[in-house]
Design a protein around this nucleic acid. Structure first.
Lengths: 338, 338
DNA sequence: AATCCTTGGGAGAGCGGTTACCTAGAGACG
DNA sequence: CGTCTCTAGGTAACCGCTCTCCCAAGGATT
């Protein structure tokens, strides 16, 4: 069977191609009677617009791009990404936009993808995750004039549209929580410091611990379970070891808990553990993990809305999505008395 | 700056649009000298083909489709999907194909997406995951003439191209492992029975346990951590409780372990636990979990290769990807003696 | 009644490629 | 030397849709 095009609809409805286009796109230029007739014919023929054709003439692709510069392994372990993608999708499918998802090994390849997409006019805009300190993607996206929403703190976005969760306030809340439980020696197992949100938390952690006169320590990792475990092992082996550890993601917290258990110690009796992100994982461990919780699916959805706003002419603004909330669970307790 | 098109290249190289097209696509019809000149100009101008235009005239989209009919929550919890997508991507980016990823709530919506994609000529082919028993997507894809590779057992694929891991052999290996440790009362915490691979494992589990004269029990869940925990709780509460439990995914196994720990019991002393998929999660628990291991990223890559083969005219065949291998870890042990 | 607006809708030129068809020139051959 | 064949490369039709430019008809205005 031949494809159904607007030409065929035009023929059957007895109008011109142009009129059909106006009718189907809810644009002025046709009478209500004609519009109704055209829509009816289109419905009967089960017409679906050809994306390529529309894209070619309208110079819009109706596609947003998302590049993830992480290994497939990391992506599958980190619940963050899939949840985020799910949130993005939920908004996109409502507006029948598509998502171009690309998984690449590093930032260099990510930037190459943006160049390619911009040249091909492949996407109408992009969502940029894992914002870095002095992020090289920002000048590139500016140069390419590719509309973008950055997921990260306005302190790092250099005036481009961004949306962020308040890591500073959250970190304060986390530290205050363990401090109130009586902990004095607190460690932080953090992600790589070049990551923007890690950097923000580093600053906040330093500030609040100075303020509360705590004895703190920070270990940077690559976010993986392995390094989270290694960091925990190192912390637990030191003289005057910390009695509370705050992790930068769930995976490392779970790995840390496993190390603690493996050493014959118990949480919270021997050490209080706090995770970050609060995926289901935190409720599947024993003891369940206290965590900074935020709604990642909603985060993805919100970001996508902002990108639509941007395309509709909204200015470059920074939007606070939400402040993660502390969910206290079994892994929180007072420090050991000895 | 204006977009660079083949027209511009033609002007600069002093040839026609058509000649440029032939030259750039390595097709006969131009002399080597001309081809070289055109390629040089294209290079200088950093020309990139406009996808929409090519798609419109060549009727190829250079895009594969993947629909995931799961909630964003499930997707983020299950390490399988992101790993699989990563594998697909790795092959796609080599051939500069794109992935259209869509997340939908149910099978109905998934089929609607296929209809839309087929009508829009949006994708050149699709990858179908989570094959069901009597899967309604198979007749639909046939009708739509949408090239597809099914991820699932040939017993369910009705002659369409499929690629599968040998769940039957794997289940035999898993049961034999616990039987050899001396377990007699064995339970299986399974996914929803309408899922093809669950069904295959159900069959295999029944067969092998009959053969080895074991005392078995099967509980079906929705694959979630919550239901995995609930099933484990139920199993552990029964008279003559099982001394070994085989789970259908990692998430439920981790949840099950947490229930066991919560009851004050220990694995493997009180119960042997076996997970399925072997994501990093299995090495992050304490004790670490014995699991059926397969390489999900490679699986995604292999499936994608098959789809390319299919488009190049390969016949409908079923391909065995691999048989999951049992990785024995700390959660395996003999049954309690009492 | 003549003029001016307004508005519906036709015609057709793109968008940037691909490809069928045709022509001009070069070499082969009788 | 004339004809025949072969090939490089030009010409232009298309793919399906959008959007500008136009004209015609009807209503309002004077």
């Amino acid at each position: 069977m031949p494809r159904i095009t607007i030409k065929e609809i035009a023929r059957r409805a007895g109008v011109s191609k142009g009129a059909v286009s106006y009718a189907l796109n809810n644009q002025p230029g046709v009478s209500e009677a004609t519009r109704a007739r055209v829509l009816k014919v289109a419905e009967e023929l089960e017409w679906v617009p050809n994306r390529a054709a529309r894209q070619l003439s309208a110079a819009r692709s109706e596609t947003f791009g998302l590049v993830l510069a992480r290994s497939a392994k990391t992506l599958s372990e980190e619940p963050f990404y899939m949840g985020f993608v799910g949130g993005v999708e939920s908004v996109l499918s409502d507006k029948s936009y598509a998502l171009a998802l690309q998984v690449v090994p590093d930032l260099e390849a990510e930037m190459a993808t943006y160049r390619k997409w911009a040249a091909e006019r492949r996407v109408d805009g992009v969502i940029v995750v894992d914002l870095r300190v002095d992020d090289p993607r920002i000048p590139l996206l500016r140069k390419l004039e590719l509309p973008a929403v950055l997921v990260g703190d306005p302190a790092l976005s250099d005036g481009m549209t961004c949306i962020w969760t308040d890591g500073t306030t959250a970190m304060h809340a986390a530290v205050e929580h363990v401090a109130e439980l009586g902990h004095q020696a607190i460690a932080r197992v953090a992600g790589p410091p070049e990551h923007g949100h890690v950097w923000i938390r580093d600053q906040a952690f330093a500030a609040i611990s100075r303020e509360l006169e705590l004895d703190v320590r920070v270990l940077h990792t690559d976010f993986s379970g392995e390094e989270g475990a290694a960091a925990t092992r190192e912390l637990m082996a030191t003289e005057g070891r910390p009695t509370a550890i705050i992790y930068d993601n769930d995976l490392m917290a779970v790995a840390g808990l496993s190390v603690v258990n493996g050493l014959g110690l118990k949480s919270p009796d021997d050490v209080t553990l706090v995770a970050w992100d609060d995926s289901t994982l935190c409720r599947l461990t024993h003891p369940t993990l206290t965590a900074m919780s935020h709604n990642i699916v909603a985060y993805g959805a919100e970001v996508t809305h902002r990108l639509f706003d941007l395309l509709e002419g909204a200015g470059h603004e920074s939007h606070l999505f939400s402040t993660p909330a502390l969910v206290v669970r079994e892994s929180s307790g007072p420090p050991p008395t000895s």
